[in-house]
Design a protein around this nucleic acid. Structure first.
Length: 402
DNA sequence: TCTGGGGTCCTAGGACCC
DNA sequence: TCTGGGGTCCTAGGACCC
């Protein structure tokens, strides 16, 4: 299979070209900073002097993305804003505007599917493309088609993108990072030794900070060093599945197809509070947030036409530890009140002594509305019956908090 | 004032069924 | 009475990605 991996550079405002800009944080704080602007002004109308600076920003949040001039200072995605402010206080901060990103996201994906219909959605700004059957797709090893797609995206959206072309998804993804922004890189099978093996293991999609740390403890830093270990050794040290997978990717092998359709598995809403909240002292505030999250998830489900039967909550404590609880019920629902009721029971099963930083509500085991009816007719599972019995016994002592 | 929000997939133990 | 597997579902946590 021949694959593209295309990654689009997110929104930039023309008047900010060449300036250090970070996008992130809560919308609220940034909105406050630019609220003196004329009514109806969009960000594009704002004079540069009016943009809020990172050094004046105070609040929780992380960077979603940053311009290349900002990255020069060492700031980048997922970094805390307070830390970024120390590195680059003069950077302009802009609010995240996901509605706008989604609009652009739809447009650039539409442009791509008109040229190459076999496309896998990998999020708001990334896609895989299988161009095996696209007429002319093989010219210059795919470079011609990549240029065509790049130009079409730019014409339609004004966005630039980086494209990697390779024999499979694994290599295409790595190739796309070779020439950013707005570049095209073609990697062939024969380039494995010269271009892939020198890269750090972290560049492999699927090797994260934990796996990388463990690899480094075994003196494996580059993909080449990973490839040098034999499969048996990797399996013995990283487990049957992970070890074998690591061996495959180190040798540039990946047979995953480009998947054009997929059904969602879960939908969730979560929020980090402006300040840590305590279950007892801030009971009313927490209760209101909790209800709101349930309503939002219910809205999302209904808007997209899904129902679910596993309902759960997520807490993040002030020490950043996470706790989750969920319960599977014997019917599908997308009703805010029903979700709130089951999620409330989950909340009673989790420790609430520590201050809370985040609260989330999740609905999983989804089915499309209409398809759910047949599934719902199935016998309730043993687990649900058991749970119902336990609740009867524990309701009295836990009824207080939510 | 370190560390967002929305996802997927995997693992592992226990219950339960055959 | 004790000893088995295999398979599925449920739950909690964790790694990872965009």
């Amino acid at each position: 299979m021949d694959a593209f991996y295309a990654s689009v550079e997110l929104l930039r405002y023309p008047q900010l070209k060449g300036l250090p800009v970070v996008i992130g944080g809560g919308r609220r704080k940034v909105d406050e900073a630019i609220r003196d602007l004329p009514e109806g002004a969009t960000l594009a109308d704002i004079p540069i002097e009016a943009f809020p600076l990172l050094k004046d920003y105070a609040g929780r949040g992380v960077i979603t993305t940053a311009t290349y001039p900002a990255r020069q200072f060492g700031v980048g995605s997922a970094m805390g804003l307070m830390k970024a402010a120390k590195l680059c206080p003069q950077a302009i901060i802009l609010p995240v505007d996901f509605d706008e990103y989604r609009r652009f996201s739809r447009r650039f994906k539409q442009v791509i599917t008109e040229i190459a219909p076999v496309m896998e959605d990998r999020g708001v700004d990334e896609v895989y493309i299988d161009f095996t059957d696209v007429p002319g797709g093989q010219r210059e090893g795919g470079r011609v088609l990549a240029r065509l797609i790049q130009k079409a995206i730019f014409d339609a959206t004004g966005l630039t993108c980086s494209i990697g072309v390779a024999p499979n998804k694994l290599l295409a993804k790595m190739a796309s990072e070779f020439d950013k922004p707005n570049g095209i890189s073609v990697v062939f099978e024969d380039d494995l030794q010269s271009r892939i093996w020198p890269l750090p293991c972290r560049k492999v999609n699927g090797i994260g900070p934990k796996a990388d740390e463990k690899l480094q403890r075994h003196e494996i830093r580059t993909i080449g060093e990973l490839a040098a270990r034999d499969r048996e050794w990797l399996v013995a040290n990283f487990g049957k599945a992970s070890g074998a997978w690591m061996h495959e990717v180190a040798w540039g092998r990946d047979s995953r197809p480009v998947v054009t359709e997929s059904e969602p598995v879960s939908m969730s809403r979560e929020t980090t509070f402006d300040r840590d909240l305590q279950a007892v002292r801030d009971r009313a505030e927490l209760g209101a947030i909790f209800t709101h999250l349930c309503e939002k998830v219910a809205e999302d489900l209904q808007r997209k036409g899904y129902v679910g039967k596993t309902i759960g909550i997520k807490l993040r404590y002030d020490d950043f530890k996470i706790a989750t609880r969920d319960q599977t019920i014997d019917h599908f629902t997308a009703d805010a009140k029903a979700i709130r009721q089951i999620a409330g029971r989950c909340l009673k099963r989790v420790p609430l002594e520590r201050p809370l930083r985040l609260l989330g509500v999740r609905v999983g085991a989804l089915a499309k509305v209409g398809h759910a009816a047949t599934v719902a007719a199935d016998q309730p599972k043993a687990g649900s019956r058991r749970r119902v019995a336990e609740e009867a016994g524990s309701a009295a002592q836990t009824a207080s908090l939510f």
